[in-house]
Write a protein that binds this DNA or RNA. Sequence first.
DNA 1: GCAAAAGTGTTTGAGGTACACCCATGC
DNA 2: GCATGGGTGTACCTCAAACACTTTTGC
Lengths: 214, 214
Amino acid sequence: MAYTYDHPHPAVTVDIVVFTVKAGRLAAVLIQRAEWPHAGKWALPGGFVDIDESLKRAAFRELREETGLSAAYLEQLGAFGRPDRDPRERVITVVYIALAPADRLELQAGSDAQDARLFYVEELPELAFDHARIIGHAIERVRDRLDTAAIARRLMPKSFTLSELQHACEAVSGTPIDKRNFRKKLAALELVEATGELLQGGAHRPAKLFRIKP
Amino acid sequence: MAYTYDHPHPAVTVDIVVFTVKAGRLAAVLIQRAEWPHAGKWALPGGFVDIDESLKRAAFRELREETGLSAAYLEQLGAFGRPDRDPRERVITVVYIALAPADRLELQAGSDAQDARLFYVEELPELAFDHARIIGHAIERVRDRLDTAAIARRLMPKSFTLSELQHACEAVSGTPIDKRNFRKKLAALELVEATGELLQGGAHRPAKLFRIKP
DNA sequence: GCAAAAGTGTTTGAGGTACACCCATGC
DNA sequence: GCATGGGTGTACCTCAAACACTTTTGC
């Protein structure tokens, strides 16, 4: 089947920067490319936009196909379209940022053709295309727009300790936060409530578990 | 000349929301369409992205062609790509926001085929395509990201009175500002300096003129 | 008992907001 | 002289930042 136009058309893809917090650090999902171009390098999950599909719908579809996430927060970062960013043809990509708790990701790790993994954002491997630049913009966006409430709602699992939430906030902002000020602000936000459970297991005093208030 | 692909490709355009401040109100440039679809309705300036041209370069080119602006602040708002937004074919548009002082715009007003005009954003005419939605997003973006310094640098002419600057800030934010607080903050910002000139002409005390500090 | 993280209040400074009157000009 | 916008200072309140010790557990 061939499709013909009277002036040249670029291809359009969506790519998704899937952020999560793992071990108190900000991390993103990357997929190892199996084919030319950039075979062996890591890249953002993504793919072509179907001709009858909205951009956001395409992003959701790719997100589901590559991470198993069926419902996640998704926001558009923007379009990237330098003429030479893909050696195959002119490709304009629309990038979305997804946020999800690490325990909801289902990566097809090391299954076969392509490997999907989480990488801490300070330890990214060599990236295909202009994806390093794209992730840079995504990190910048997340750093200065995600506040405590958004982090609690979108990056934390169902229940968590206040220290875990604080570490997530520190991972996103990239700066240390004072424990008492953090808890004072949380109390004022009326954002979380204690579940009544305790998290046992550390060689230290057990921490109360919290959840998002409805 | 025909261009053939083995899967369908959308067309990609750039559209530009050119904001300025006129008579103390926020205004945007619109162009009246001469042809189907939406003949007679008003639309954002824009056009197709050339196959070898970056998105930003395309936006600058269209901006120059349709408003005479050769250097303006330009930032990407995002991509809009619902499948049915253009009845001719699938068109994905990447939207940029431009900011310029009103005295630098050179609109080809009423010349012939297409008419270009400024409209106050609270008095927009019926718009073509999904441009009403796009302008809505652009206004939202500008409202919560443009601060006093950006307004002074990007929307004001070479010299201006403090009241003019204040009115511009009020037009952008959509809320009234206290005069003394505004001037106190301006002083703290060390953003502007008096030119020494006065603006005569009103039936009242003449105002000092200011310029951006280098 | 010691290492390791949990939990808990007060003080200070900066910045934002509210608010009212006199001044210089054109008519 | 009056209408019109230009120009000026103080008091209060809110919010962010700095800062140290006790508690509970595992080993």
